[in-house]
């Protein structure tokens, strides 16, 4: 038996599994918003994408409501990352439509800028700017995109750095921080733009078990503020605890989506079943 502190990740997975088996509700789970707002902030219709000849995303239909927390999971190469990267047009879709905050994503740069201002993104590899201090990383967007005065931007950045609990690192460079700290700075950097939607692309996949917890805790706190979140992750414990909806993707398609309880307890498709048994089975 692994000691609990050594691998929270395993522990969480075990919890998820046991819950999946017994259907016991976790007491610590934050209140789910359900479909909090009935205003849809993201609407994806019949969306398709190709990489060269390879058909990565096939007929994706998805509607996300304000304040909803969605976890996207699936085997690697299933198109999860590509899907959320299409939402702020880091990837271009070829067919169908994506509407974010009532603006359709097209090649029109004006629309794109408005959308990117309101959609934050956190990457697997943090992607902090290594030549800037933590504080400068956070103030860059507000100063240049929102044209905020420097003092105001710094105050804002410190507020969010406090929220992710690393205000004391503000003067350091990213290279001097641990992976978990870097990822929390990346979250703060996105939040400084005051987005209404946050995208997370496997935010904990490059981290050690101890650091995974600190980042997930930050994300849970963020979820409690009512932020609309789309999270690509393999952290099933997180999905269980926070998500309003879990989406399972395979071969570029959304194969299954459901509330976490039903998703883990009673998966419908065979592919979901085999995926869950693999990811929770150790």
């Amino acid at each position: 038996m692994t000691p609990p502190s050594a691998s929270k990740r395993t522990a969480r997975k075990t919890a998820a599994r046991s819950k999946a088996k017994n259907g016991v509700k976790e007491k610590t789970a934050p209140k789910r918003s359900g479909k909090a707002g009935n205003m849809s902030v993201i609407k994806i219709g019949q969306m398709n994408k190709w990489y060269g000849d390879f058909h990565v995303l096939r007929d994706i239909n998805l509607e996300v409501y304000e304040g909803e927390r969605i976890v996207i999971c699936g085997p690697s190469g299933s198109g999860k990352s590509t899907l959320i990267r299409c939402i702020n047009r880091l990837e271009v879709h070829h067919k169908g439509c994506i509407i974010v905050n009532n603006t359709e994503l097209t090649s029109d740069l004006k629309n794109l800028e408005t959308i990117r201002k309101n959609v934050g993104m956190v990457f697997q590899s943090f992607n902090l700017f290594p030549h800037l201090t933590v504080l400068e990383n956070c103030t860059l967007g507000p100063i240049w995109v929102h044209k905020m005065p420097q003092a105001e931007a710094e105050a804002l950045a410190m507020e969010y750095l406090e929220r992710v609990r690393i205000p004391e690192q503000a003067g350091k460079y990213p290279g001097q921080l641990s992976g978990g700290q870097q990822q929390r700075v990346a979250i703060a950097r996105s939040l400084c733009m005051k987005p209404n939607i946050m995208l997370f692309d496997e935010p904990t996949s490059a981290l050690d078990p101890e650091m995974i917890k600190e980042v997930l805790d930050t994300m849970i706190e963020l979820a409690e503020t009512g932020m609309t979140m789309l999270v690509v992750t393999h952290e099933m414990g997180f999905a269980n605890k926070v998500a309003d909806r879990v989406i399972f993707m395979d071969e570029g398609q959304i194969v299954e989506q459901n509330e976490p309880e039903a998703f883990f307890n009673n998966p419908q498709s065979d592919r979901t079943k085999s995926f869950l048994s693999q990811i929770l089975g150790h």
């Binding site: 702020n88 880091l90 740069l109 800028e113 990117r116 201002k117 959609v119 934050g120 993104m121 990457f123 590899s125 992607n127 902090l128 700017f129 860059l140 967007g141 240049w144 995109v145 990346a186 950097r189 996105s190 733009m193």
Partner: peptide, 12 residues
Amino acid sequence: GQYEAAQSIGLN
């Protein structure tokens, strides 16, 4: 990733 991070915070 540096280009993507910059784009994702809205820099042109």
